[in-house]
Computed example of a mutant assay.
Amino acid sequence: MREQPSAADDGLEESSPFRRPAFLMSAGFLAVVAVLGAVTFIRSPAPRSEQPSGPQAGDTPSTGATQAPASGCRPSDTSQQVPAGPPPGVTWQVYKTMALPYSSAAGPLVVSADGEVARCFAHTPLGALLAATHLSSRYVFSTQWRVITTEQVIPGPGRDAYVKLRKNRGVDVVVPGSLGQIAGFQFVTYGPQTAVVQLVMRFSTGQMSVSAVTVKWQDGDWKLELQPNGSPSASQQLVSSLNGFARWGGV
Rank of each mutant, 00 (worst) to 15 (best):
V153I: 11
G28W: 09
R146I: 12
G54E: 00
D160I: 06
F121K: 08
L242H: 09
S71H: 09
D221H: 00
V111W: 09
G184R: 12
S76E: 02
L238K: 06
A46E: 05
A105H: 04
W217A: 08
G180D: 10
G206W: 05
P125Q: 03
L130W: 03
T40H: 04
A68K: 01
G127P: 06
E14H: 08
S71Q: 15
A246M: 04
G249D: 06
G206P: 08
N168C: 04
R169L: 07
R119H: 08
V140N: 04
V174M: 09
V140D: 08
P176K: 13
V35P: 05
P228T: 01
R48V: 05
V239Q: 03
A113L: 00
W217V: 07
Y162L: 15
T91K: 03
T66V: 10
V33Y: 07
Q237G: 08
P47E: 12
T205L: 10
G156P: 06
S71I: 12
G85I: 01
A106M: 04
T40C: 02
T149E: 07
Q93H: 11
L165P: 02
D219P: 02
T40S: 07
W248T: 06
T40Y: 00
K216W: 00
E50A: 14
P83W: 12
C73A: 11
I182E: 09
A132G: 05
M201E: 14
P83T: 12
G158Y: 05
S233C: 15
A132P: 10
P69T: 07
A118C: 05
F23V: 06
V239A: 03
G177K: 13
G220Q: 03
D172Y: 04
V35A: 15
T205Q: 14
I148C: 07
Q4K: 10
S233D: 12
T194R: 15
R2N: 05
G250S: 13
R159Q: 15
Q80C: 11
R247Q: 14
Q67W: 01
P69C: 01
L165K: 14
V153R: 05
P5M: 11
L129N: 06
V215P: 11
A22I: 10
S231M: 05
A27F: 14
Q236Y: 00
F29W: 14
F203C: 07
Q4Y: 08
L242Q: 09
T133H: 04
